[in-house]
Design a protein around this nucleic acid. Sequence first.
RNA 1: GGCCCCAUCGUCUAGUGGUUAGGACGGUGGCCUCUCACGCCGCAAACAGGGGUUCGAGUCCCCUUGGGGUCACCA
Length: 493
Amino acid sequence: MTEVRTRFAPSPTGFQHIGGFRTAFFAYLLAKHYGGKFLLRVEDTDRERFVPGSIRFLIEELSWFGIQIDEGPTKEELHTYGEDWDDAPGLGGPCGPYMQSLRLPKYKEAAELLIEKGFAYRCDCTPEMLERERNEQMARKELPGYSGYCRTRNVPADKPHVVRFKVPQKRTVSFNDAIRGKVQWDSIPHRDTVLLKSDGFPTYHLAVVVDDHDMKISHALRGIEWLSSTPIHLLLYEAFGWEPPVFAHLPVVNGPDGKKLSKRNNAAKSSDLREQGYLAEAVLNFVTLIGWAPGEGSDQEIFTREELIQKFTLDGINESSGVFDPVKLAWMNGLYIRKLPVQEFIERSKPFLEKEGVVIPEHEFAALAPHVQERVKVLTEVGAMVDFLMDRPLQRQMDAMFGKGVDASKAREILTLSLERLNTLPEFKTEAIDQALRAVATEVGLKPGPAFVALRIAVTGKTITPPLFESFAVLGKDRVLSRIRETLELLPQ
RNA sequence: GGCCCCAUCGUCUAGUGGUUAGGACGGUGGCCUCUCACGCCGCAAACAGGGGUUCGAGUCCCCUUGGGGUCACCA
């Protein structure tokens, strides 16, 4: 088998949503599975839709996911677009440039070749003429499309023109899709389509065929929306006399509302996920599982990147569309957070704490980290879990203190007794606090649960916190006692 | 509308002619328990419909229905 080479070929028209990245993951995983190469090619053939910053976004996100690009735009190529930033990677490779706007001569040459061979022709029909033609066709209830008026007119090269592909009307075309099996058309559902635009830029059809061939792409993975233009591409390969790659048309990823993922959909943007405290490895794992499964009766769903590479093959890809379920992602993210070594959990949490203004001594956070780790699904939840460690006035949820046999006077009793017992503790450590407080509960005639509600709120202000005794131990005797005293003042008589 | 793709619990999926249709998320009941989580145990929940083929269909074929895509000098 020749080298497996796949590419992710986005157009820089804005941010990529999670569905776009899944395409990249699949291409990457496939290449790596077979020990091949994964390339990034920028399909910037539409100058009007170009959005500055989108290439940078793409490369940085891929890097966040830990995906190494083997070949792609060089720093100079990026620079051409003002997409250079300080640590832009210098990708490059033997098949460059990797930005289509920098490959214009290649497309022109290819178009000329096709004209010479009689597979294409120049056309100088104006947009107005085409529009009129289309309207007439619609009026006659015909399928709209170019009539082929210029096929035999021999439009000279020095006049403004486009180059059109001479699409044979009566032809059977079929190919073997790696995911769907044989797909066949008994006639070509396209008219003479444009290959080279009048501004000298290629259309997608020409560019993708020329580049995939030029870059020796072995497997072309793309969204299923491309399936219906595959006949054009196949015909183009035939006209050039080139061997087409293996095509794999991927199923769609929909949002939770069942509609195609878009900017409107929540949680569709990878950089948002990062800011929301999701881990790259969890997102990679989860997103790969939309439309792919290991098969063979396996029900494994937690995979390291290496396992993914090892198990990923095209026949594990589904043919039907899937839904991106943020709820399950959150679950999986929680799983990944819990699997993190504590120290790494601490490190990864830091930026989030900082951003939320939760400033606490590292050793205090570290002491509670193991408990926090199993209580959060996303890193943005860490702050609220430990901010009671900050030295600032507490906002206490006083009303939550009452109920289940606890009224104001009972609360006072609990707090007063706790104050006394904690104060006389020889060692302010978890175990000792545990014993002392349980004894208090017993003495006031309450079960630990209800009794500790008052203490929890008194000392942390909240109803939901890491384990109580550990939290007290970290806070230290002075802070705990003074917070209890403060609360005593707040209690109604 | 023509052409093409798709169809298993709410969701992600396993299944490749013979299964009590399995797992996971979510839901729900319980255990554990200082709150919240974690963990563990249980329950509910699916083969879109109709025809074939076959001794036997979730699995193969056809039709219907329902989704989706595509028919540009956008990708």
